[in-house]
């Protein structure tokens, strides 16, 4: 990333940026400014940067345990498995963490109006439906932060309301923070800090 692109950034080229769990952060920028990249750096799925990311004070981190217990991520491209059904996609994650019971998962599916699609293959869903599946999957694990990469891009206002309330509730229960990226101001959560990339 060249210096011009990041000159006005609140993160890139700054001496340090701290995210505290329990707080909500909005990372705001136009497309192509590295919103997804910054989430990938935090998630450990990209190491293509200079500098250091510390979790608490640990620099040496095990990405696998991080992904199972500390960081949850709603990917912009969902990273769902098209050949599996809605329920199977969610279970695939829950089998790793055993965070939710089957009833809880079914309740979540119904809550996000996906009950009639529970056993449909993900490849047959609309983008908005896929987005909701990805969000349910992300909630099937304990976390200190949940990373949301433009999570509402294909949702209508009613669904945004339902989904954001759900995420906020889950985060509160675990005293976790929310780091969300968006193109513009979002009023879904009460953000403690807005960061311009």
């Amino acid at each position: 990333m060249s210096e011009d692109e990041v000159s006005t950034s609140d993160i890139y080229m700054q001496p340090n940026v701290v995210f505290n769990s329990g707080k909500n952060y909005l990372i705001k920028a136009n497309s192509g400014h590295g919103k997804t990249s910054i989430l990938n750096f935090i998630y450990g799925s990209s190491t293509n940067y200079e500098g250091k990311i510390n979790y608490n004070s640990d620099t040496e981190i095990n990405v696998i345990s991080l992904r199972k217990t500390k960081l949850s991520y709603v990917f912009q491209d969902y990273k769902l498995f098209p050949s599996l059904s809605v329920f199977q996609n969610i279970i695939l994650k829950n089998n790793l963490t055993h965070h939710k019971t089957q009833d809880q998962i079914d309740a979540l599916i119904n809550h996000l109006n996906l009950g009639h699609k529970r056993d449909s293959l993900v490849e047959n869903l609309s983008l908005g439906q896929k987005q909701r599946v990805a969000i349910i999957r992300a909630l099937c694990q304990p976390f200190h932060f949940i990373l949301l990469d433009e999570p509402f891009s294909h949702l209508d206002p009613t669904n945004i309301k339902i989904v954001s309330a759900l995420i906020q509730k889950e985060a509160k229960q675990q005293n976790a923070g929310i780091i969300m990226t968006a193109l513009d101001e979002v009023f879904a959560f009460n953000f403690d800090t807005t960061i311009n990339l």
Partner: peptide, 12 residues
């Protein structure tokens, strides 16, 4: 994609 995604969601 499947294999990388599995790793991304936490499978070793």
């Amino acid at each position: 994609d499947v294999i990388v995604n599995l790793y991304t969601i936490g499978y070793t």
